[in-house]
Structures are given as C-alpha cells and as structure tokens.
C-alpha cells in the first residue's frame, strides 16, 4: 500500500541559529539524508522531494472568481512542510516504523489507489 510521508520543519534560517541548535539541526539533516538512502535502496521509498523554505513559497488562490498570487504558504501555521516521500509498504505499522526513524515530525497519509482502475 502506498503512503505519503509529509515531513515537518525546514532548513531555512539554520545559518542564523546559534550553536548548538545549528549543529543539532545539521545532524538531523544528515540523518534524514541517510534515511532516504537506506529506504530508497530497500525499495521502500519510491519518490520524494526536499522543498525549499517557506520564504520561497507562493500561493495562488481564487476569491470571487478573481485569481490572486501571494507570497508565502496558504496554510498559516508555525509548522511548515519541508519535504515528502512516497513509500510503498505493507501497512500503516510499517509506515510508522519508517516515520519513527525520521529525525522530526512526520505526517503519514494513505494515498488514493487507482491501480485497480488502470488495470481494467
């Protein structure tokens, strides 16, 4: 079954952080790199991207039929999405095992499966 793991947190602003917070974030970042490598090789990660920081995000929305473009994410929250991975695993517990090894907050979302429909 396929799930999307949405990763919370961003590396944006890490340069401005003081030690040891900066070192701690860099260590987590390296760990996330190893995480990707490990599960990609194991065939569990089938896709994914790291996103640039929220200051680079743009929102396109429509109000009363008028399209507007604004700077920043639409969803206002102190939490931001820093990236995602598509994984192919047996069940939610296997997805949770992987999520537990990730050095940060992870949201696990089952995807809508259309494989049966294409098969017909």
């Amino acid at each position: 079954m396929k799930y999307v793991l949405l990763f919370g947190g961003t590396m944006e602003g890490v340069d401005q952080l003081e030690s040891p917070a900066r070192e701690s974030m860099m260590a987590d970042y390296e760990q996330s790199g190893r995480w990707f490598e490990k599960y990609y090789k194991a065939g569990k990660v089938v896709g994914g991207h790291e996103l640039q920081g929220p200051s680079t995000a743009t929102t396109v929305s429509r109000k009363n039929g008028k399209v507007t473009v604004t700077d920043g994410p639409f969803i206002e929250s102190k939490e931001v999405i820093g990236g995602y991975a598509e994984i192919e695993v047996a069940d939610l517990d296997e997805a949770l095992e992987m999520a537990k090894e990730w050095p940060g907050t992870v949201e696990i979302r089952p995807v809508v499966d259309h494989s049966q429909e294409t098969a017909r």
Binding site: V112, E117, R120
Partner: peptide, 13 residues
C-alpha cells in the same frame, strides 16, 4: 492527482 485518475468517471465504478 495525475495519470490513472483520469480513467475514473463515476462513483459506481
């Protein structure tokens, strides 16, 4: 949603 999703047309299916 891309790709395969285009195949689908109705809730019944």
């Amino acid at each position: 949603n891309p790709g395969a999703w285009l195949m689908t047309t109705a809730r019944r299916r």
